[in-house]
Computed example of a mutant assay.
Amino acid sequence: MKVLQRFSALPAMDGDGVNINRVSDFKQLRFDPYLMIDEIKSDDEQDFIGGFPPHPHRGVETFTYIRKGGFEHRDQMGNVKAIRAGDVQWMSTGRGVVHSEMPLADAKEGLHGFQIWLNMPAKDKMRAPIYQDSCDKANPKIVNEHGATLHALAGSWGFNHNPDEITATIEKLAGNGAIADVSLAPDGHGIVNLERFHTVCVYLYQGELHYVDAQGLRESAGAGQLLVLDALELCHFQAESNGAGLLILAGNPINESIVQMGPFVMNTQAEIDQAVRDYQQGLFGQIE
């Protein structure tokens, strides 16, 4: 694989004092259609026990994936779901969602999960919200003979030149977004063909990968780093002796300028101001 840019996640805090690591770009949009990747990873409940009390969103898609532990999701649409290890949840928030995500009381072994934000096209930002999750249907996976396992979290995926071998429960993300979790055993490897996409990013959450950069130099990346790849090159993932775990984020740019303020992502400052007024006036609804 050929890496064009590399970014490191930075410590941040969100919700009610939840410690996270975050990679985001709301200005230059170098990950378009993706805007932000938050990772929560801790065995100390003090890092996440406060959770995310009720808060709004407009104009953005949120994609949550849990690898260990879990959250209870509630929203003003009436959805109440326990999102546990292996589950994903997608909200295309459109004109407005109010939701909360609080740690499950029976999840006692720490928490590891991600929330990924995608931009929405201007034409969709004020449509009705959409909610989906995979709680009732396990995400499909492929295991190859070289120690690589791919879990399809959104969209269609395949190893070794077959991009449509399996399809996740959740599809139709903004920008044709597709997301997968790839686990590599020690010295494991796999090839993924993603040339149908314009944007391909890899977030490494475990282990180490070696790669060739845009200048042809050999480099390595470790946990907490996001790599922007050349989508026209075959993505050949090769782990070292400790194995590796990574998320692949693929999609096509929306190519629209945005204005972001907290949980609102719109196209103009006037639209942001309207979102704030609508929320303050209770037009987003409330969780029952």
Rank of each mutant, 00 (worst) to 15 (best):
E171S: 15
L247R: 01
A152E: 05
I166S: 10
E45P: 15
Q225Y: 07
I191C: 07
T169W: 01
L246Q: 05
F63I: 02
N79H: 15
V192K: 04
V212M: 12
N144W: 11
R277G: 00
N139T: 02
M13N: 12
G70R: 05
F197G: 06
G190F: 11
P53K: 10
Y279M: 05
P263F: 02
E208V: 14
E219D: 04
D213F: 09
Q280D: 13
G69I: 09
L4W: 00
T169Y: 02
F159D: 06
V276E: 11
K108V: 12
I40L: 15
P53M: 08
P263G: 09
L150H: 01
G15H: 02
A250Q: 08
R67T: 13
E256W: 03
G175N: 06
N119F: 06
I166R: 07
Q281G: 02
A107P: 00
A105C: 00
A178V: 10
D164Q: 13
I191G: 02
M126V: 10
G190R: 02
D14Y: 00
G224C: 04
I179S: 09
G175I: 03
H189E: 13
T169A: 12
D230L: 05
F71M: 14
N162M: 11
Q115G: 05
K81Q: 12
Y131M: 05
H112A: 04
I130H: 10
Q28Y: 11
Q269L: 14
G113H: 10
D38R: 03
K68N: 14
A174D: 09
A168S: 09
N267M: 02
N79F: 05
D181E: 14
I254E: 11
G158A: 04
R58I: 03
H112V: 00
L111E: 04
T64E: 00
G262M: 06
D47P: 05
W90R: 14
E171N: 15
Q89P: 00
P163N: 04
Y131N: 04
S92N: 14
I272T: 05
Q76C: 07
N252W: 05
G155Q: 08
F52E: 01
I258A: 01
F114L: 03
N79C: 02
W90Q: 13
V212Y: 04
D43M: 12
M120S: 06
V259E: 08
V259L: 03
D181H: 14
H161T: 10
V200D: 01
G243A: 04
P129N: 08
G51L: 03
G175L: 07
D44M: 09
I49K: 15
P140E: 06
G285T: 01
K172A: 14
I272Q: 00
A168T: 05
I254D: 08
N242V: 08
R95L: 06
S92E: 09
E271M: 10
L283Y: 02
E233C: 11
F48E: 06
I37Y: 11
H189F: 12
L29Y: 07
V228F: 01
G15D: 06
R196L: 12
E109D: 15
Q281S: 13
K125T: 09
I287E: 09
D273L: 11
E109N: 15
N255A: 14
F284V: 00
A214W: 03
G17P: 05
E240F: 07
K41P: 00
G188T: 10
E208K: 15
